[in-house]
Nucleic acid binder design. Structure first.
Length: 129
RNA sequence: CGAGUAAACAAGACAGCAGCGGGUACAGGCGUGGGAAACCACAGCCAGCCGAAAGGCAGUACAUGAGGAAAGUCCGAGCUUCGCAGGGCAGGAUAGCUGCUAACAGCAGCCGGAGGCGACUCUAGGGAAAGUGCAACAGAAAGAAACCGCCAGCCUUCAGACUGGUAAGGAUGGAAAGGCGAGGUAAGAGCUCACCAGCGCAUGGGAGACCAUGCGGCUAUGUAAACCCUAUCCGAAGCAACACCUGGUUAGAAAACAAUGCGGCGGCCCGUCGGGUUUUCGGGAAGGUGGCUUGAGCCGGCUGGCAACAGCCGGCCUAGAUAGAUUGUUGUCAAAUACAGAACUCGGCUUAUAUGUUUGGUCGCAGA
RNA sequence: CUGGGUAUAGCGCAGAUUGGUAGCGCGCUACCUUGGGGUGGUAGAGGCCGUGGGUUCAAAUCCCGCUACUCAGA
């Protein structure tokens, strides 16, 4: 399946406003089904999480994690991964675990409201602990 | 051995697995998707193809791929554009001397000053007799000074008043008119002398800043990171510059002003060039490729120079992305932990920085 | 990439041109006024002027270096 990178600001804005999302201290994922016939992804690392070297590391780690998670995705989706301040300080495995679960949740369910999603997320958090 | 000082260097290594960028070898067409096109993407197909040529290309293989500060953007340059010469003013920058450099507010050596027992460190370090301003409060007075005091004269009833001399003493202040001692005097005073400090002149030394010696008279406080003066230098904007390509537009309407005017190298004046200009309404301002890495380059040796640096010889090619590659992860090494990511390119400065290694002086203690 | 601006009391701002006393409004504290509260009145506290140096007798102010925030243009 061909993979592409999201560059346009309007797609980012569309996902932030209309996409489904999962929140975690290490990573925030937005997802939306598209009609492109391929899966696209974008990474956002704001100035808040650190200097240029730290932002680059966050992006690298997220890309590496996505590369391994990618194979399990079915259908064509748009994803946006938002790095958070703790992302720069952990190993790739932890990001991968979080991302795997978030994508699984987002792609499996359909038409759930934001509130319910958040509930599921918090439950799974508790179970992990 | 301890303390302190100056400088240089490194900025993890190796192995396994997974992955990315551009480059080279070796040689693109079709298809699909995006697009108006140029062009871009794709392990979709074929095996060489397209093109007149130059040249171009999927896949595969190979080597290669962040820093000492890549940072801050504080200086200086290259490069590009502003149609084309220019002059002056304004404005800005620098400020001991000599050298180095493409240039600099940088560097090297030296001079003066400050600090340290010392090795050594720090230093915006021109001009205050060109002019103007300011020096609050206090104080008599902040510049050619008499409040108290001291001395002389004179008046007078003791007190004291008046006139004059006087910068030794008191008080104020950051600063009080060279410092200190002796002579001198009515009391005093560079009035005279010794030493010290400053200024001027002369002689000698030095490339120069300056230093040494001698003589002279004592006349002028501080502030120029206040205005200013002197000397030297400076056009502006920035790779989102700019060039080319594809496509589109390169229509127009209304009003006002117009040669003592308008526009252009941005402020002003002159010069010069252009031939309309301004406002409102309406249309367009999107994409691709180049610029993009061979350069005041790096490494080694020799020569010159105290050094910065320069010259010669030999060798090397060492990131070029465009939502932005250069890494992720595991193991071993005692630990790998700091600051931190090229974005047109160089030379500096400034700031951040874990840990480790090496070298040259200095001081103290002990021993031979 | 380029060019500006701001930082002063708990909050919002003066003071910087021309260097010597840090001030205004709201808020805060105490007291008075009221049966009580508000309003009103009187008095008071609260500042190493963002940070590190320098010039000066003396710096919020002048000069240099940092830090944070913020604006504009391409």
């Amino acid at each position: 399946m061909p993979v592409a990178v999201i560059k346009e600001n309007r797609i980012f804005r569309r996902l932030y406003s209309k996409g489904k999302y999962q929140v975690h201290p290490l990573l925030v994922t937005y997802a939306q089904r598209n009609r492109e016939g391929r899966t696209r992804y974008g990474i956002s690392a704001s100035k808040k999480i650190g200097c240029a070297a730290e932002r680059n590391r966050a992006k690298r780690v997220i890309r590496a994690a996505y590369r391994e998670v990618e194979k399990e995705i079915t259908g064509s989706w748009d994803f946006i991964f938002v790095a958070r301040s703790r992302t720069t300080k952990v190993k790739m495995d932890e990001i991968k675990k979080v991302m795997e679960r978030q994508i699984k949740t987002l792609t499996a369910e359909n038409g759930k409201s934001g509130k319910e999603k958040r509930k599921i997320e918090s439950q799974s958090e508790k179970q992990e602990r």
